[in-house]
């Protein structure tokens, strides 16, 4: 075979593979949206769910998903930022650093069910947090940490070493240089990483079944005191999320309209994930252009 021929064959094979991947994606997205979108109504989005009767909604589950996401990021972002700064800027190239890196790799490959069961034993039972948003947020933090640390560390590494030298050469301390020069330069990448990890957290179910629980108690959206048991902000209440609700409807759902609610809820979930991903790109591009002055 001549080199032109082999080049042509390789190109065709690669194109077929890409087409295959794209087709799977279009089929999945299309199926979910086409089956689900007709069921996405204002009623679905604004009504509480029903256990037995038809006509339930996903209001509380949708809110719970967002609330859990916010709490998870509140816990995991500062931890990841600190760890990533350490790994990218301070860590020496020795056995301790490689042990930390390996631990992070292992953490990222843990099955989410294992994370969930671990959270159940430690936080729900041992620490007596019960099935609660807090237990769920901590379990999701375990899940989210490796992803966030790696994406933040990558963004920090992408800032050229010469920026660091410039700061140091002006008599600034290492920390001032990192805080004032490296972190702002890495911000677009960091934000993109946060939003993408948010998508993963938002869609997670298995780790939450045993930690945040499968029930969505009626809460008051006008009670802003997070210490009140019926407040929507109370972190100690159980909170079924959208992804867990979809799972429950399809395994043990007894409402007559379980299939249509599940389809609608799935469409909502996918749309939220798409919004996360697209906004991650948009915000990243916008900040990059703002920083580099190419408008």
């Amino acid at each position: 075979m001549s080199s032109q021929q082999s080049n042509r064959v390789a190109t065709i094979v690669i194109n077929i593979m890409v087409a295959f991947v794209v087709l799977i994606l279009i089929f999945l997205l299309g199926d979910i949206l086409i089956t689900g979108l007709p069921h996405v109504t204002l009623h679905l989005l604004t009504s509480p769910s029903q256990s037995f009767a038809a006509g339930g909604g996903i209001r509380d589950q949708l809110f719970n998903s967002f609330y859990l996401l916010v709490l998870t990021l509140l816990i995991s972002f500062p931890l990841s930022l600190g760890a990533a700064i350490y790994l990218a800027e301070y860590a020496a190239n020795n056995w301790l650093t490689s042990l930390i890196r390996t631990s992070i790799e292992v953490l990222s490959s843990l099955p989410s069910v294992v994370v969930g069961l671990f959270g159940y034993l430690l936080f729900v039972i041992q620490f007596k947090f019960g099935f609660s948003i807090l237990s769920g947020a901590i379990a999701l933090t375990f899940f989210n940490l490796p992803l966030l640390i790696r994406s933040i560390e990558g963004s920090l590494h992408a800032v050229p070493r010469s920026q660091h030298e410039a700061g140091i050469s002006l008599g600034l301390s290492n920390w001032k240089t990192i805080k004032g020069i490296i972190l702002p330069a890495a911000l677009p990448g960091i934000l993109t990483g946060i939003i993408l990890s948010a998508g993963r957290v938002f869609g997670e179910a298995a780790a939450l079944i045993y930690t945040a629980g499968e029930s969505a108690p009626i809460v008051s959206y006008t009670n802003w005191n997070p210490l009140d048991s019926n407040s929507f902000l109370n972190p100690m209440r159980p909170a079924e999320t959208l992804a867990v609700h979809i799972w429950k409807l399809n395994t043990e759902g007894v409402t007559p309209d379980a299939v249509s609610i599940s389809a609608g809820a799935s469409a909502v979930l996918v749309i939220v994930l798409l919004i996360f991903n697209l906004s991650a790109r948009a915000i990243g591009n916008h900040l990059y252009q703002k920083g580099s002055g190419h408008k």
Binding site: Q163, E165, A166, G167, S169, L170, G171, A185
Partner: peptide, 18 residues
Amino acid sequence: YEIRRHIGMVFQLPNPFA
């Protein structure tokens, strides 16, 4: 840090801050 305020440095590749 004090030394570098008195003895400044310019590098081979221009490295303005973003």
